[in-house]
């Protein structure tokens, strides 16, 4: 195995395309575990952290462009991001311990393609897009289109994610993310839920996106759950519909972390709780 830390995007693209089994490295909190366990045996590791733009958060078109290798700790410490996208920052900050936060990145969390990745439902709810670069050039994709199944992405050979873009927010918009774990920390989500919504001046929900993690082979955008909220005052009736839609969208498996029945049940509970937090945040903006 070889390790390279290129300083230009072109060099990184060339390296990743050069050998059969090449893996990009951002924070390494998943990759190193997989290396140690022999789950992956790459010939080449390409460290992306020295590439321009991969470690910075920049304001762009009223939104934020976040380098793929920006760490959870850096997201939390950014002066503005947390105010606009509290749910995304919360979700990223739930990934692992303080130590993991010092390394783990949004790009890595996304491309590791775990169905239970904490930041992904929040990014999907946020309507985030990703910039992908590779031998064929640059392309933009919706976050929800990146993972195709457990550990699998649609990225072609030599391609990698350079940044994630969080769009500008209309007034009275807010997001939130909650996950269910048996302990208080250090667990993989049994269910995760991201909600982003916008209210009008009367408090009616004009836009809403709801995403669920760990209830299918990849994080899901649940359009019906969002639709349940739109047009409502986020009242009990709307929440009933939200819960039903969230549960209906689940197609989980039984595994060591949770049963199907439990996951479906919890998905509804979390959808309501997360939407409640997002609504409170949006209402608080007056």
């Amino acid at each position: 195995m070889r390790y390279e830390a290129p300083e230009t995007i072109d060099a990184a693209v060339a390296l990743l395309g050069s050998v059969g089994r090449a893996r990009p490295l951002a924070g390494g909190t998943d990759l190193l575990v997989q290396l140690r366990a022999g789950i992956v045996e790459p010939d080449l590791i390409v460290d992306l952290k020295k590439l321009p733009g991969l470690r910075t958060i920049a304001k762009e078109k009223g939104g934020f462009r976040i380098g793929a290798a920006v760490t959870g700790a850096e997201l939390r410490e950014h002066p503005d991001l947390r105010k606009v996208w509290p749910g995304v920052v919360e979700a990223a900050n739930l990934i692992g311990s303080t130590q993991i936060q010092g390394r783990a990145s949004l790009g890595g969390n996304l491309c590791n393609a775990s169905p239970a990745a904490d930041s992904v439902p929040a990014l999907i709810a946020a309507g985030a897009t990703v910039t992908i670069i590779g031998p064929g050039g640059q392309r933009e994709l919706a976050v929800e289109a990146v993972a195709s199944g457990p550990g699998k992405t649609i990225l072609a050979k030599g391609e990698f994610v350079t940044s994630i873009f969080l769009p500008a927010r209309p007034p009275r918009s807010a997001d939130a993310y909650l996950r269910f774990i048996p302990r208080t920390e250090m667990d993989i989500a049994v269910v995760g839920c991201g909600v982003s919504l916008t209210l009008d001046q009367s408090g009616t929900c004009t836009a809403a996106r709801v995403a669920l993690g760990a209830v299918a082979e990849r994080a899901l955008l649940v359009a019906e759950a969002g639709a349940a909220l739109i047009g409502s005052k986020l009242d009990a009736a709307a929440f009933e519909k939200l819960i039903a839609a969230a549960r209906k969208a689940c197609r989980p498996i039984d595994d060591k972390r949770g049963t199907k029945v439990f996951r479906i049940d919890i998905a509804g509970v979390l959808a309501q709780r997360t939407a409640t937090i997002a609504a409170e945040r949006a209402r608080g903006q007056k």
Binding site: P182, R183, T184, E185, M186, D187, I188, K256
Partner: peptide
Amino acid sequence: ALNEEYVYGADGKLQNAGFLDYRMPVTSD
């Protein structure tokens, strides 16, 4: 009492042989 257990698959193999899924109490618990 709350979370620790050995979880076996139908193949007789241990599924949680690590601190991630063998859930011992952490400070915040």
